[in-house]
Design a protein around this nucleic acid. Structure first.
Length: 466
RNA sequence: GGCCCCAUCGUCUAGUGGCCUAGGACAUCACCCUCUCAAGGUGGAGGCACGGGUUCGAAUCCCGUUGGGGCUGCCA
C-alpha cells in the first residue's frame, strides 16, 4: 500500500503580532506540503481566552497572504472544538490516565523544597493527588514511571527523554479550559497530521505529546517531527515580541518585498545545494528538504535581508515597481511622469521601497537644502567654481536643447573653462537644484524638471552665494 | 538546579573521512568603471571553540571541557 500523503499544519496562537519566526515555520511546513502534494492545514490555537483576540487572528491571516503562503484546510479554531477535547479527556479518565488535582504551584514548590531541598523546588509536579480520586480541580495526565520516550526528528535525530523526568502535566485547567498540549495532540490526531514542523522551543514538550497521543489514539501512527532552530537576536537570544522588532508587518512597512522576505526566511537554516541564493518559489518547493535544515540557531540579519530586497527591487518591471512603491508615496508622485521615467534609474539605487521618496522629492517641492551639501559645494574654496558653473550653465542653457545628453555636454563645456571634470563641475548644480550631493543621475533629472524651474532654482542659489 | 538542544569567517551558510591551501553570500576595506549615489568588475582582510581519542588521513566520527540557547506555567 502506498504511503499516505503527508499532512502538515501550522498552528499559531493569536496572542500578538505575527512574527518572523512563525513565518519561517509556516513557510517550511508549506514548502513540504507543496513539494509532496500533501495537505497544509491552518489551525488557530486559541484555547487561552484571556490572551487571544480576533485582531491577532486577522493579522496572522493577512501576514500569511502577504508572504504568499496559502492553506488547504482551515483555519480551524480550537475554541470551537471543545467537545472533541472533552471526549478525549473523558476517555483518559476511563482508562485511568487522567486524574484531578487541586494543588497550587506554590504548594508543589514548597513540598519539593521540603522533600528534596531548596534547589529542587522547580523539579515539577510531585504526584501528590495521583491516587486521591478528587471530584474537582484541574486535570492531570498520568505519565509513566518507567521507560523512556523517543522523538523521531528529521532535524535532530532521536532525542530520548527519561519518563521519570516527565511530570504529570495539566491537560485541563480548574476553570474548565483545555491546555495547549491536550488540544494540540487531540487536533493533530483528529486531523491526521503526519509531520509536525515547529520551533525548537517545543522539543521538551514533545515526549509529553507522544505519551498523550499513545494514550488517546494507540492505533494511529505517531507523527514525525522536525524541530527547526530558533531565530535569535544579536545577543543570540530567541527573538521575542517584547524586546525585538519581529512583526512581519513591520518589515512590510519598512519597504521589504514579500518575495525578498520569503526568500530570506527560507535561507535561515536551509540552503540550496550550490551557491544560489535568489530562489524562486518553485525552486524552493523543488529543492527544500527538512532533512537538510540546520540544527543550530540563526541570527535574523536585517542587513542581509535588505540587500536581498534591493536585488528583488532591481528585478521588478517598471510597472510593478511603481505599484510596489505607491503605498510609500503621495498619490501625485506615484502617478507622475517623473517616477515613470526615472524608475529604472531608481530601481538600481533603492534598497527599501520608501527610499524612492527622498530621491524624487525635489521634483515636487522646492529643494530642502542640506547644510553640509551647501557648505561643501558652494562656500569657501568651492565658491568660485560654484559661481562659474551656475553662471555658465544659465548662459548656455538659453542656446541648448533641453535634453539630458545636451545638458551633459553643456556642463562639460562650462566645466572645461576652469579645468573641472564633469564630476566636480556638476556638483554645485546638483546641490542648487536638488539640495543634496547625492541623488538620481542629474541630467535626466534636469530634463524632467524643465528649463524654467531649473533656471529658477539656480538663480535662487546664485543669490545665496557669497 | 534539572532535562534537552546547539557549536565553520562579524552574520547566513557550503562541507557528511582524503577533491579543504576550508568555498559562496551579506557586511567591511582597496582599486577599476563612473555626472553624484548606486549598480557592475577586480582584489584584500576574516573562520573549523578547546582538549583527548579513532584513523594512514578529521571541519567531518567518538568522549570530555568550555561556551551559547531552549524548556522547566492551571501560556502557547
Amino acid at each position: 500500500m502506498a504511503e499516505p500523503l503527508p499532512r502538515l499544519r501550522f498552528a499559531p496562537s493569536p496572542t500578538g503580532f505575527f512574527h518572523v519566526g512563525s513565518a519561517r515555520t509556516a513557510l517550511f511546513n508549506w514548502l513540504v506540503a507543496r513539494k509532496t502534494g500533501g495537505t497544509f492545514v491552518l489551525r488557530i490555537e486559541d484555547t487561552d481566552a484571556e490572551r487571544n483576540s480576533d485582531q491577532w487572528v486577522d493579522g496572522i491571516l493577512s501576514a500569511m497572504r502577504w508572504i504568499g503562503i496559502d492553506w488547504d484546510e482551515g483555519p480551524y479554531f480550537q475554541s470551537e472544538r471543545g467537545d472533541l477535547y472533552t471526549a478525549a479527556i473523558d476517555r483518559l479518565f476511563a482508562t485511568g490516565m487522567a486524574y484531578r488535582c487541586t494543588c497550587t504551584s506554590d504548594e508543589v514548590r514548597l513540598r519539593n523544597a521540603a522533600n528534596f531541598g531548596a534547589a529542587e523546588a522547580e523539579r515539577g509536579y510531585d504526584g501528590y493527588c495521583r491516587n486521591l480520586e478528587l471530584g474537582e480541580g484541574a486535570v492531570r495526565f498520568r505519565t509513566p514511571d518507567t521507560g523512556s520516550t523517543t522523538v523521531v526528528d528529521l532535524i535532530r535525530g532521536t532525542p530520548t527523554f527519561d519518563n521519570t523526568k516527565i511530570e504529570d502535566f495539566i491537560i485541563r485547567r480548574s476553570n474548565g479550559g483545555v491546555m495547549f498540549l491536550l488540544a494540540n495532540v487531540v487536533d493533530d490526531i483528529d486531523m491526521r497530521i503526519t509531520h509536525v514542523v515547529r520551533g525548537e522551543e517545543h522539543l521538551p514538550n514533545t515526549p509529553k505529546a507522544l505519551l498523550l497521543w499513545q494514550a488517546i489514539a494507540p492505533d494511529l501512527a505517531l507523527p514525525v517531527f522536525a524541530h527547526v532552530p530558533v531565530l535569535v537576536n544579536e545577543k543570540r537570544q530567541k527573538l521575542s515580541k517584547r524586546r525585538d522588532k519581529v512583526a512581519l508587518e513591520d518589515f512590510r512597512d519598512l519597504g521589504i518585498l514579500p518575495e525578498a522576505m520569503r526568500n530570506y526566511l527560507c535561507l535561515l537554516g536551509w540552503s540550496a545545494t550550490d551557491d544560489r541564493e535568489m530562489l524562486s518559489v518553485q525552486t524552493m518547493i523543488d529543492e527544500f528538504r527538512l532533512e537538510d535544515v540546520n540544527s543550530s540557531p540563526a541570527f535574523f540579519d536585517l542587513a542581509k535581508l535588505t540587500s536581498m530586497n534591493a536585488e528583488y527591487i532591481r528585478l521588478l518591471s517598471v510597472d510593478d515597481f511603481i505599484e510596489r512603491v505607491r503605498p510609500f508615496l503621495p498619490a501625485a508622485w506615484a502617478d507622475s511622469v517623473v517616477l515613470r521615467h526615472l524608475a529604472p534609474l531608481l530601481q538600481e539605487r533603492v534598497r527599501l521601497l520608501p527610499d524612492v521618496a527622498t530621491m524624487i522629492d525635489f521634483f515636487f517641492d522646492a529643494p530642502v537644502m542640506e547644510p553640509d551639501a551647501w557648505i561643501k559645494t558652494m562656500t569657501g574654496s568651492a565658491a568660485p567654481a560654484a559661481h562659474h558653473m551656475i553662471e555658465g550653465f544659465i548662459a548656455g542653457a538659453a542656446v541648448t536643447p533641453w535634453l539630458a545628453d545636451d545638458l551633459k555636454l553643456l556642463v562639460e563645456r562650462v566645466g572645461a573653462g576652469i579645468q573641472l571634470k564633469l564630476g566636480k563641475a556638476q556638483a554645485p548644480l546638483r546641490v542648487a537644484v536638488t539640495g543634496r550631493t547625492v541623488g538620481p543621475p542629474l541630467f535626466e533629472s534636469l530634463e524632467l524638471l524643465g528649463v524654467e524651474e531649473t533656471i529658477h532654482r539656480l538663480r535662487v542659489a546664485q543669490a545665496r552665494l557669497d
